[in-house]
Design a protein around this nucleic acid. Structure first.
Lengths: 239, 239
DNA sequence: GCAATAGTGTCTCTAAGACAGTATCAC
DNA sequence: GTGATACTGTCTTAGAGACACTATTGC
């Protein structure tokens, strides 16, 4: 029996991150069915006939956020396949995806009437999620932290147009550090293909208006954005 | 039908890399069954009852190389789930793993009498593999290239004890570049936790004997090993 | 001695970090 | 004007790269 090939069902679970009010937030849903009915969980869904898992994830992402998935950053985190991770039969194996979205209004009273909402990652990590979603969330956030250094995904947290101050806030919130404003400004404006100035300006409550930028073509950030070494109390959260 | 939950079988496929005679090589097997009978493919196997996919991969790795999987580097690359990737029913979805091994003798005439053998990655990429294994191989090699910069996995290509010249060869072969010997030496010996001197020396054919090192505790290489920008004709191979 | 590889010293230059100083807004 | 934020200039310093030089072997 234990040597037999397993037949499993596959799901794609989403860790959709955004920044709201200076806090890293994740989209969670309240489960309406067993198992773990009433508990918070990551959104996700089953693989369907004609699609691959990336398409499953993109479909779910669109359903949950109301935004075309092509406009958001979406990448695999990993596969979670422990035999005991889901009590259902046949075995349920999931592929976790990291999605990054700007601060957008959810379709709360939408057609599905899903109880999807943004919750601060820190809060969710202490209250706990269903299944092994705590582990998935930790892994996805750690992946996002690492990718910020070498790839240009930080712009995915911002809207189409954004200021350098908003981009800096992305790094500061996700890494839990404070960065030097002048140096950050020089660094990102000089990184080739990272930012494209739109020419527009955004008035600020009090102060000089900030120039607006759009995301450039580059996917890789060269040279990388170095993460400060000293100010890193985030390590303690790791596995 | 297309909206129905799919039931699938899961496999773990392995991209086992090593360096032989100054060439990056991958372990391939000749398929003995349909589909793709007689074609070359990556080794892999089905998920079994009591195990998760990481354990499936570790078991296969041990079977193919004859080495305890804990001694080798093993990590997920990604999930490949296109509906047409495997003609069998039920659908076969695979999770690809990257494994890194020192140049070791294969159990060729072993119990299983598997036709496993090392083949240069460049040759395999031009002759082609079964299924979507060409894509998997490209992704795994690209992952290895990227990870070399920031993690200490290069030591996994070496034996227990190795010289700095051997370690430098790992970088040069995988990146397809030549690195400055003195600068490389200083860089890796000063990186905290990367190398531990054993005190031993290895005589060389012609020249001063090289000091021997073992892999240190660090997983992250800080500061990272920067990959030369100019000498990179490898990009053209990408997807 | 010569050839070959291992390893060190030193100079240059780029880029990161610190931080003073300037620009442009609301009031 | 003050206060706030955006942005620029400049100095310092760490580290990458180039490369001359020394060290230790086989012959």
């Amino acid at each position: 029996m234990s040597r037999a090939r397993q037949t499993v069902t596959l799901t794609a679970d989403l860790v959709i991150l955004t920044i709201r009010d200076g806090t890293l937030c994740v989209l969670v849903v309240e489960r309406g069915n067993e198992p773990f009915e009433g508990r918070l969980a990551l959104p996700g869904g089953f693989l369907r006939g004609g699609e691959n898992l990336d398409e499953t994830a993109a479909r779910e992402l669109c359903e949950e956020t109301g935004v075309r998935a092509e406009k958001l950053h979406l990448q695999q985190v990993g596969v979670y396949s422990d035999p005991e991770r889901d009590p259902r039969r046949p075995r349920v194996v999931t592929c976790a995806y990291l999605a990054i979205a700007p601060d957008l209004p959810l379709p709360t009273a939408g057609s599905d009437a899903r109880s999807a909402r943004w919750a601060p990652v820190g809060v969710v990590e202490s209250t706990g999620l269903a299944f092994d979603h705590d582990q998935i969330l930790r892994d996805a956030v750690e992946l996002a932290r690492a990718e910020l250094q070498f790839r240009t995904i930080a712009t995915a947290f911002c809207g189409d147009d954004f200021t350098i101050g908003e981009l800096r806030e992305v790094y500061e919130v996700i890494w839990g550090v404070t960065l030097d404003k002048p140096n950050f400004h020089r660094k990102v404006t000089e990184a080739d293909g990272f930012l494209v100035p739109t020419g527009g300006k955004r008035p600020v409550a009090n102060g000089r208006p900030a120039a607006l930028y759009r995301a450039g073509d580059a996917e890789l950030l060269a040279p990388p954005m170095m993460r400060p070494r000293s100010t890193t109390p985030e390590r303690s959260r790791g596995r």
